[in-house]
Write a protein that binds this DNA or RNA. Sequence first.
DNA 1: TAGTGGTCTAGACCACTGT
DNA 2: CAGTGGTCTAGACCACTAT
Lengths: 243, 243
Amino acid sequence: MMIGFDAPDARLPAYARLRDTFTARIATGEWTPDHPIPSESRLAQEFDVSVGTVRKAVDGLVEEGLLERRQGSGTRVRAPSFSASLFRFFPIRETDGSPVSIPSSQIILRSVTQAPAPAASVLDTEDVIKIVRLRSLSDQPVLFEEIYIPTERFAGFDKLPESSLGPLLYPLYFEHFGVMVKRASDEVSFGKASERVAQRLRIRAGDPLAVIERTAFDIENRPIEWRVASGSATNFRYRSEIN
Amino acid sequence: MMIGFDAPDARLPAYARLRDTFTARIATGEWTPDHPIPSESRLAQEFDVSVGTVRKAVDGLVEEGLLERRQGSGTRVRAPSFSASLFRFFPIRETDGSPVSIPSSQIILRSVTQAPAPAASVLDTEDVIKIVRLRSLSDQPVLFEEIYIPTERFAGFDKLPESSLGPLLYPLYFEHFGVMVKRASDEVSFGKASERVAQRLRIRAGDPLAVIERTAFDIENRPIEWRVASGSATNFRYRSEIN
DNA sequence: TAGTGGTCTAGACCACTGT
DNA sequence: CAGTGGTCTAGACCACTAT
């Protein structure tokens, strides 16, 4: 009997240690969405456990959305579906309920700076890169965002060439820094537009503002981003599923 | 080999048919939170399958939150934790982020009526009971709610004695009508207070208003409630977890 | 057709709760 | 202590996919 595979995490059950080992392989890029991972029977051999135990470990990761099975074909790392992630992570709809198209994105600023209090407290560091961004729908600005990511995990983000910056940030995090957003926590509130924000959004200072504060977490549940997004409260819709 | 237990739902795998059978036992009240359900080995005997298959069925229901296991003690129907459900289903916080205490609840009206368009479309019937409710925190009104439930499933709700109406509706649904809320979908938007709503909330007509529209679903994913809740947008916080 | 995941079995031993 | 769920095994056969 094998005792600890890679990470001898205490005396957890075999399937749990396996699951952690697999997670590490995904996180380090040893397993990628390009190829199926080894078959369950192969993994059972490699780790000297029964197929059932491998299955239970894989089950957990499928549950978490990190892997996906295809009967007959194999099990793969799930490619983050970033086209869908806009809705997952910014479920704003038109007033009539129809999904909104992906807003275009204009990056106004990227700089290494000191985190404001809420970001520092959430990210547990003051050493951050700040991104300021304006998102628009058919040339109409809809969302003004200030985003903070820890320099430690995203060193050099401020120096990425403009050309590599698409309309979505989470794919960038993944492609350039191997950081995959797994979940996020949003907090919606209402306020009034400051002069500075109002100008960007082309509304008037004092106009009602919808504010979404978000903390995003990676696969290992570490906070990796804090952002505050503001948009005109008029026509604002925020959708949320509760289970 | 047994072919179909209770509900011969096509030719589903055994564990899936078992899971449905178990769900039915919960829904009909045959299994209650009072006593543990039969042990896995007993169920395996009863349905003439292996323990592993029973386990897989139970796993699914535990996953869904309908059952809970206790090692050594047994598996039980999960008593809906209604104290927690306020946060699950109305995750409003104080501005400082601390959880809010359960608001008191004053029912203003209960009556059989015709559903307004959005409720009728969601509930798929115009035959509803309307509940109007004011929720307050230390005598300060915070939320004005109009709630619609189908008469078909909640016949007699309007005639329940006042004394049996607690501060939370979902426990009532469960206790008196056997309807368990399993998930809900919220939509947050922004508006202005009408004269009528403003009076109830003790704010001024035209003041900024946060509006939450919710559709709640039962175990079988049928819509069972549509409500619209309004509160002053000032100090409003809505929290949402995205996975 | 060979190889994959999907289902299922009939056991085993362990960890825990209750009496 | 007997009984429960928790873990794990070493198979079997089926359904599906790719070649």
